[in-house]
């Protein structure tokens, strides 16, 4: 039963000679919203990309249901695991619906560019992201926040168990950051597993179920988001002296730098 699992074992990944991640083990928590946090360059993005098989992982491996992801046919894996990278390219002139439709590729065949489930899946994804009204707009005409919603809709249309997001809130203003995090929360509440690389510790603690804290290519802490953050951890990982307060709205931990 517990076999339905995305996991990394002995993962070592790197661009060139020095590995960014070294001998890392990670079980993605099922059906939960996990935030990966850590300083710049600690291997957060590398980890999510490896989990989605976008980066080659030798030695070490990523398994899904106990089977090496490299052994899956690419489209079959893409029906289970979705990744939204940090800087996807918007095709020139594409509409919102056109973009979301690209998320259906894993369900097509060499000669079959369409499946009957496409239309309901696309409509559902547009609805879940509140983009139904904007479906026929060119993506280029959307605001930054709306555009990020469109990308999330594309990933939703992929209808995967796992949704991996690489810094989905970067370059958005605070209102749109919260908007995206609420959306992640909703996706997770639908029963899907969400893993997102986030920068803001307070947002991570508030919206995610679990926190994974990384430093220098290794996981240094992994646990429930309301108990994992401590001032010694923040000091260890980020080199910042801080106190842990309480979020006045949600009661979740809040990192506050100490007085200067």
């Amino acid at each position: 039963m517990t076999y339905n699992l995305l996991a990394a074992r002995g993962l070592t990944v790197g661009y060139g000679a020095t590995p960014v991640i070294h001998d890392l083990d990670f079980d993605v928590p099922q059906g939960r919203f996990t935030a990966i946090v850590g300083p710049n360059g600690c291997g957060k993005s590398t980890l999510v990309k490896s989990l989605a098989r976008v980066l080659a992982t030798e030695p070490g491996m990523v398994t899904l249901d106990g089977k090496h992801v490299q052994a899956y046919r690419p489209r079959r894996l893409a029906q289970r695991v979705a990744l939204l990278p940090q800087h996807p390219t918007v095709p020139e002139g594409v509409t919102v619906r056109g973009l979301v439709a690209r998320g259906r590729y894993p369900y097509h065949g060499a000669l079959r560019q369409w499946s009957p489930q496409d239309t309901p899946a696309i409509d559902q994804a547009l609805n879940d992201t509140g983009l139904t009204e904007l479906a026929d707009m060119p993506v280029a005409a959307l605001s930054g926040g709306q555009r990020q919603r469109a990308w999330l809709a594309m990933v939703l249309a992929q209808q995967t168990d796992y949704v991996l997001l690489d810094e989905p809130t970067s370059f958005l203003d605070i209102a749109h950051q919260v908007d995206v995090l609420r959306l992640c929360r909703n996706i997770s509440n639908q029963g899907r597993t969400v893993v997102a690389v986030l920068h803001d510790l307070n947002q991570a603690a508030r919206y995610a179920d679990d926190l994974v804290v990384m430093r220098d290519g290794a996981i240094v802490a992994h646990g429930r988001s309301d108990t994992t953050l401590t001032s010694s951890l923040v000091s260890d990982v980020f080199g910042l002296d801080s106190m842990i307060g309480v979020d006045p709205c949600s009661g979740t931990p809040m990192v506050v730098p100490v007085a200067d």
């Binding site: 098989r53 976008v54 690419p74 990744l83 800087h87 996807p88 590729y105």
Partner: peptide, 10 residues
């Protein structure tokens, strides 16, 4: 869509 997204879509 870019290489990374294309790859993750299979």
């Amino acid at each position: 869509l870019g290489d990374e997204l294309a790859t993750s879509l299979g």
